[in-house]
Structures are given as C-alpha cells and as structure tokens.
Amino acid sequence: MKSKEKLALVLAIVPLLLLTMSGMTLSHWDDDVKVEGSISMGTFDVQMSLEDFYDNETSLDVGHISASLADWNDGDDVDGGVNDSLIITMSNVYPGYEGCVVFNIDNNGTIPAETNETMITLTGSSTFDWDTYGEYVIAELYYLGGGTPLLLAHLDNGSLVYDYDFTTDPQGLLTLDVGESQWFQLCIGLTQDPNAPEAMMDTSMEFSLVLTWIQAVP
C-alpha cells in the first residue's frame, strides 16, 4: 500500500472511531421524564327518601294508604338501585278519599344531575278503564320546597297535564346539585262525585311514574 493510500485509510477510520466513541459517550447522557396520572370516577346516584304518608279521613278509618322505599335497578345501577323506587299502595278507596305521600328526590352522588319534562313518563294500567273512570281519579304532584305547595302536574282524564313551566323552571326543579334534595308530595284519590259509577267498586288501577336523571353537562 502506498503511503497516500494508507493516509486516506487512516483518515477514514479515525473519524469513524472518534464518532463511534463519541456516540457511545453521548448515549449515556439521557434522561426520562414521565407524567403519571390517576383518574378516580365520581358517582352518579339519584335516590328517593320517604317523609310521610297520610289520608284525608278524619272520623272514619276504613281507607288505607301505605308507602315504602324499594330498590330498583334500571339496568346499569352499580349499587343495585338502592332506594330508587317508591311503592304506594292504597286499598278500600271510595269517592272522596284521598291519600298523600311526601317524599324527597336526593342526589346522593358526587355529580350534579338534571332532567327535563321529556324524561318524565307516566304509565297507567291497561286493565283500568281510564276512558270511563279517569275523570273520577285524582292525582296531583306538588313541590313542597317553596313554602306553600306548588302544583306541578295533575292527572286529567288519565293524562298527565303539567301545571308548572318546566321550560323556564323557575324553581330550579330540574337540576339537583350534589347533596341536594327536592321535596315533593303526590296525592291520589277519587273525587267526591255522587255520579261515580257503581262499576268502579272493587276495581283496581296501577300506575308507574318514572323520572330519568342524567349527569349535568360540564
């Protein structure tokens, strides 16, 4: 090998070696940074609580009303739907008799809840002749949190009629902050009507009122 060729080889290898050694050295100078996060989910849980139930009998004691809380899993309740249902049973009802149940809807979760009137559904038993007897049935839902009872909705010939302006919601009933409760009263009975048909005797009717609450949008 000629000296020029040797020199060229050396010039090619040395920088390569230097670069290699330099690179090895640099690769030891590194540092890692990381972001560790944890997310704990809140809970969304609207429940009911029972305050009282009573009827309008003063001298008599033949009609009966009872109310109790029950669990109801609407499909995805992680807690099994604890206290998500209020059961009202009325027996030996007669014209003029009216029973009322006072209850709360409570936000027991950690996230605000909201609803609207489209998420309130009323279902009556199909076996009851609402067309004929519906006018004799009283059902009134009141809000009690404002001092004097405020009529929110009532049953008119078997159909739910809203007396409260749910669009503007002046009482703020459609939202439930965390830990907040709303106080309601539901009264059910028969009108004192001498023309109430005899065929209403020994009959029964059932109804189901479902309120769906969703988490409030941030």
């Binding site: 109801w72 998500d84 009202i88 030996n92 009802v93 059932e206 609450w213 969703i214």
Partner: peptide, 18 residues
C-alpha cells in the same frame, strides 16, 4: 359517557264497595 339514573313511583289503588 352521560351517566343516568332513574327513580320511579309505583302506585296501586283498589276501591271498596258500598
């Protein structure tokens, strides 16, 4: 992601006889 929860009131009423 919208969580929801439902509550319901179930009522039954039976009438007496005269």
């Amino acid at each position: 992601s919208h969580w929801n929860d439902q509550v319901k009131i179930e009522g039954s009423m039976s009438t007496g006889s005269l």
